[in-house]
Design a binder for these strands. Structure first.
Length: 511
RNA sequence: GCCGCGUUGGUCAAGGGGUUAAGACGCAUCCCUUUCACGGAUGAAUCACGGGUUCGAUUCCCGUACGCGGUACCA
């Protein structure tokens, strides 16, 4: 029987969750759901000193906002828990010891100073970073060089030590990657990576292998930056559980800075003033707030859509995908091999498209919230829905609904007088005086009847209707922008329209 | 330095021995609308370089260059 598909994502709770991270989660999720498998979240809080309290909840909320809730996680639980690394310490120790017994790993007692001494001693211009490997390990203070008695003594005395993998000398490790195909590495170039740290925590190398085995992971997706350490993981699988049990690997391309080169970092968000994280993230180190896509006014559908097609496409011209369609059409083979620069303009375009796609009902909660954040409490739901439909084509980000629609709720406080004053005259003034009475007596108040009345009166007065529309717009909106002016007037209602016309007429009269 | 991975317009990208080398974002011009958008049309702009293989390479092979990643008791 085929094993059930199980994928996992293991973020570090130290640095938030930026674009690349969310995209990795997304691809994990799409693949799992496509195969009716499980998507699990494991928290990589191996480095206790940098651990950020509350980070798990942050990550979880991010995933929830994106619609990527895991089936198993530290917050949710599941059959293969615990899911938090710090709660699995004993398990890792046990496997590390097993490797030592099998001669595949060894205790090392070198202090940080000794390590540094070794590195500076062997450092040359050709080899700027000497490794702890098959060449140098015979010069170090480890169980390979110490007598068994000495090692026992040190261990018994509680001497600080790590467990390192003993990398074989002349082997070729082959790895099949679902995106890149076969990749091979020469083990002589690998170093004896620490598997288990002096503080009792595993490194990622040990943890990823042990957890993937114990949690029955079938497919592992991670960033490209992991490719160089993949052979270590293959070796661990070989020594511990058998290479045939190893999950399928997919190393995802990186998301690059919008300008220049290099991996996108949170600093870029601050520097460029663009969101980098799904949700606002306060950097614990600097205390700086990095704006999120959510808070910038992105719809989760747009954010997920944009991320999904940054490095993947289904070969057609389609660009807009709802989640269900992404699940149906996603394929690992079509993920790009090269990194992609993040383009904020395009991201906004996706949001714009999604705003146009959603119904007024779907948009309503977001818009209502945006209005409330500006101190405008919406009591008339039906009215707001009407306004949403009227202005949404010109909204790229959710806050645009406020700037584009606020005049429906509040009379303009100032007018763009320069737009009308130069051409203002007594005839136009008279027109509007009459228009007030004419429209005031209209049986039906809507865009159609208003426009008809307006044009009729203009014709009677022998003034071009077009020349009068701009002044009317300024009266109602204050600015030159917005939806068709009679639509605005129709929505505003009789009383409010007349009030606003009178208001400006009065101001104009004074100057 | 070494190892690994990459390289199609400014950006995201389709394509994959013979094509006018799709499409999208952005940009420009025009149309629509006497507003701003939306929408529509048009345009400028691309196969990193050098060798092979071939009747023919953007496509296949080999180099080179460039970029990125890794080279930690970080993930």
């Amino acid at each position: 029987m085929e094993k059930k598909i199980r994928v996992r994502f293991a973020p570090s709770p130290t640095g938030g969750l930026h674009l690349g991270g969310v995209r990795t989660v997304l691809y994990n999720y799409l693949f799992a759901k496509q195969h009716r498998g499980d998507f699990i979240l494991r928290i990589e809080d191996t480095d206790q000193s940098r651990y950020v309290p509350g980070a798990e909840a942050y990550i979880y909320e991010t995933l929830k906002w994106c619609g990527l809730e895991p089936d198993e996680s530290p917050l949710r639980g599941g059959p293969f828990g615990p899911y938090r690394q710090s709660e699995r310490k004993k398990i890792y120790r046990q496997y590390a010891e097993q490797l030592v017994k099998a001669g595949r790993a060894y205790y090392a007692f070198d202090t940080t100073e000794e390590l540094e001494a070794m590195r500076s001693k062997y450092k040359t211009p050709e080899n700027p970073s000497p490794q702890y490997d098959y060449r140098s390990r015979s010069n170090m203070r480890n169980a390979l060089n110490l007598s068994p008695e000495e090692t026992e003594k040190l261990l018994a005395a509680g001497t600080a030590h790590v467990i390192r993998i003993k990398i074989p000398e002349n082997e070729t490790v082959k790895l099949y990657d679902m995106i890149r195909g076969e990749i091979s590495f020469d083990t002589s170039l690998l170093d004896d990576k620490v598997l288990f740290k002096a503080d009792g925590m595993p490194t990622y190398h040990l943890a990823v292998v042990v957890d993937d085995h114990l949690m029955q992971i079938t497919h592992a997706f991670r960033g490209e930056e992991w490719l160089p350490s993949a052979p270590v993981h293959v070796l661990l699988w070989r020594y511990l559980f058998g290479e045939d049990q190893m999950p399928m690997w997919a190393h995802l391309p990186l998301i690059l800075k919008p300008d220049g080169n290099g991996k996108l970092s949170k600093r870029d968000g601050i520097r460029l003033g663009i969101p980098i994280f799904a949700m606002n993230w306060k950097d614990p180190a600097s205390g700086e707030m990095i704006t999120g896509f959510r808070e910038s006014g992105f719809l989760p559908q747009a954010f997920v859509n944009m991320l999904a097609v940054l490095g993947w496409n289904d070969g057609t011209e389609q660009e807009l995908y709802p989640m269900q369609e992404l699940i149906a059409k996603f394929s690992i083979e079509r993920i790009h091999k090269a990194g992609a620069k993040f383009n904020y303009e395009k991201a906004k375009w996706f949001n714009h498209e999604w705003i146009k796609k959603l119904t007024a009902e779907e948009l309503f909660p977001y818009v209502k919230k945006a209005f409330e954040e500006k101190g405008l409490v919406v009591s008339d739901t039906r009215f707001l829905m009407k306004i949403i439909l009227l202005v949404r084509d010109r909204c790229t980000l959710i806050p645009d609904f406020y700037t584009q629609g606020k005049f429906f709720f509040e009379a303009p406080k100032q007018w763009d007088l320069n737009a009308i004053q130069p051409k203002w005259n007594e005839y136009k003034n008279a027109f509007f005086m009459d228009y007030i009475t004419r429209s005031g007596s209209l049986a039906e108040w809507n865009a159609g009847t208003l426009e008809a009345a307006f044009r009729e009166l203009a014709a009677e007065k022998n003034i071009k209707a077009g020349e009068l529309q701009l002044p009317l717009r300024i009266m109602l909106v204050g600015e030159k922008t917005g939806p068709p002016v009679f639509e605005i007037s129709g929505s505003l209602g009789r009383e409010e329209t007349i009030k606003r016309i009178e208001n400006l007429l009065e101001t104009l009269g004074k100057s």
